[in-house]
Design a protein around this nucleic acid. Structure first.
Lengths: 193, 193
DNA sequence: ACCACATCCTAGCAACGCTAGACATCCTGT
DNA sequence: ACAGGATGTCTAGCGTTGCTAGGATGTGGT
């Protein structure tokens, strides 16, 4: 109603975002296991209950960070795809960008793809940024390819596996480049790649 | 030294295994978040501190479950590979068996590949069962292929991605079969597959 | 029979996610 | 201008977590 309420809403929205970015910073600096509601509250200079007046719980905060991450990922992939010299190089560029994103922001990546979240994937309520990111993979394949989505899913799965297995030390972190090269070659060398 | 001590050691080893299998059962029945040291202690009918006389902590228990899982996975993959009608079908059979394993024992799979563990991968102290499981993938490729390990790593990464993204609902659980088919086709259609 | 040792449990610590209820603060209507 | 009510925030605490110190109990060896 009044201008006062508008100001309050602005402040509230501002604080909402502050919580998200602070959680993300804390996670990127010390890992998600260091992100406790107490420490987070202290950093934003409010008491614990205010976190719960903005989010349903800790998982919801992680989800909010994840959504921000999806937007960034989508933009990152899109930039890479459009900067590719020729269409045939788009897939390679996008895949490389994906791995880059995962290795440079491991905590953010975890929030998006590893930690338990409330997010709905591949359904009606899927957040648009998430759809956009997935769409970048789909766009790497020719329009007349009836199985573009399938191609994209497998590509994404492979990249995710590489990212997460490498991050947790289950495959050697070096050699990502060779694996990437091999993957792209195999996927692209298909009837309708 | 005496027979009494031997009996004690036997009992201790027996209890050690009891803890592991109980933890696994509990995880498979209700998920790992339901596996607390208290509940686990109650189930094995001992107090909490005995768990810590066998393991360094909860993570070590998870790791122990994971190692058992690696043995089973290795055996499962080996069986599938050897049952393949012809060598050209080995890769497909092993990949299918891998996904089968992951979907039928999700909690065990999580202990092995998702949850934080103390395990060392791809190093000198890598547990033999783990090497064996990975070796089954390598064995699917021809001996004269200099990049067998690379092939195996990418194959494994892709399968892991499919398994974990599907399990967490990030890609639709149906269509695994088509994805598997596509993946195997692309990987196998290579100069030295 | 007695001592010494190993084994096991009770009890408790600090930290976790989360919430009820008191307190203060500010807007609103008369 | 001032009381009343709504809004917002904090203190304090609940139940649970992983983990551990220290005492009780019972067994084995001399």
């Amino acid at each position: 109603m009044s201008a006062i309420n508008e100001r309050r809403e602005r402040e509230r929205a501002h604080r909402h975002q502050l919580i998200i970015t602070t959680a993300r910073e804390l996670a990127e600096a010390e890992g998600w296991e260091a992100v406790t509601t107490r420490r987070l509250a202290e950093r934003v200079e409010y008491s614990q209950p205010v976190l719960y007046s903005h989010f349903n719980g800790k998982d919801a905060i992680v989800s909010a960070v994840a959504i921000d991450g999806f937007s960034e990922l989508a933009a990152h992939l899109r930039r890479a795809r459009q900067a590719a010299p020729e269409p045939g190089q788009a897939l390679r560029a996008v895949c490389r960008a994906y791995l880059e994103f995962a290795t440079e922001r491991p905590a953010l990546y975890q929030a998006m793809f590893v930690l338990p979240t409330d997010l709905k994937f591949a359904s009606a309520e899927t957040p648009p940024p998430l759809r956009a990111a997935f769409g970048e993979f789909v766009s790497c394949f020719r329009l007349d390819n009836e199985r573009r989505e399938l191609f994209a899913e497998v590509t994404w799965s492979a990249l995710h596996g590489m990212a997460v297995l490498s991050d947790s030390g289950r495959i050697p972190p070096d050699g990502q480049e060779e694996r990437l090269d091999f993957l792209v070659t195999q996927i692209a060398d298909s009837p309708a790649g």
